[in-house]
Design a protein around this nucleic acid. Sequence first.
DNA 1: TTCGTTCGTTAACATTTGTTTAGATTAATC
DNA 2: GATTAATCTAAACAAATGTTAACGAACGAA
Lengths: 198, 198
Amino acid sequence: MFTLRHVLPIMQQIQHAIRQMIMISQQEMEGLLKDCYSKTVKPKEFLSKQEQISNEIFFICKGITRSTIVDQSGVEHTIHFSLENQFVADYSSFMLKTPALNSIEAIEETEVIVMPRSAIEWGYAHLQQGDRMGRLIAEYYFIYFDNRLKNQYVFTPVQRYENISRVFPNIHNRVPQHMIASYLGISPVHLSRLKKLI
Amino acid sequence: MFTLRHVLPIMQQIQHAIRQMIMISQQEMEGLLKDCYSKTVKPKEFLSKQEQISNEIFFICKGITRSTIVDQSGVEHTIHFSLENQFVADYSSFMLKTPALNSIEAIEETEVIVMPRSAIEWGYAHLQQGDRMGRLIAEYYFIYFDNRLKNQYVFTPVQRYENISRVFPNIHNRVPQHMIASYLGISPVHLSRLKKLI
DNA sequence: TTCGTTCGTTAACATTTGTTTAGATTAATC
DNA sequence: GATTAATCTAAACAAATGTTAACGAACGAA
């Protein structure tokens, strides 16, 4: 049987990400990560599915995922891409303990650290800076969403396309174009058309 | 000169809102609110303007505001409405201390409590549950934004219009229709056209 | 009151975007 | 390697949305 000491090296990346947010002792870190484990999913496999309550937060060590939501007509929309060194979850479902509206699906082969609810709650209760960590995560995502929403109002589809390409230059090699179109809120045919005009 | 004891009655509403989020002693409450003050703005007057760093959070006691953002072509978009008993600010600007992209403008005569940055920072540093309050506020807005973004993907303009009318039935008596159109991301002429079809 | 402004509706027309279908290319699977 | 599936592009047409202009009603300021 492995002890925590043996498992930790795999956890280096997530530890680094956590230490960028808060001051945390080695002892606290071990407590926080004791229920966490790593998991690998293949392309098109799901990390979590809609209609189930999200009881896990994922930290992406390697790979890329997309979060999808299905509308009343059954059409699937890509609402986020998530990359290496980012946390991903349906946070609304996690926080409210309501059924998730999102699914999270791997695009490439993806390796994640799974943080179960028990680990997060242990953190809030026992970490000196637990609530601070929660606040910073929430604020980080708040800023991200605020930005996304403003973009929707202020930029045209072409501008949004150029913005992604700038922020995430490699995206065209890693995700199919029809998913980018879905993310932009336009049809794949139309994105192809717009590209011709640039 | 008024002491805090005299000022507090005006502050009842905001105290109630704060107590719904965290446990807070009367002494802590007085510390938190000691730099806060009330302010009344007339319709079309601004609580805060774009390009300035937001150093205040507003609590709306009475009235209604809209948050606006201007695109590259100079067109103004309404991105939020905020009502009684809600906090409003350009939180991204407040948190990052960067120039605001939003302006906040009163639609009706509006009375707010102004919470300066000093009050918020005092709260984070001295309140027993300061970070918890920060986390809950950030999480609350996170959920709000998450929802807004999903709505953009999943609902048509007509559905979004019906959703507002349901969530905020009185909106048509309180805000001009062209602002609602702007909020929905469509032209005022088109909203008028869509209404005919319902 | 009177005058000017803001607001909502309507119609006509222009532009953008979606849909369908087809074909060609590449990637994945057996 | 052969076959199937996935992906992107293209064209033609349909639907949705924007723009402009005109008009009248409601509202506010002088």
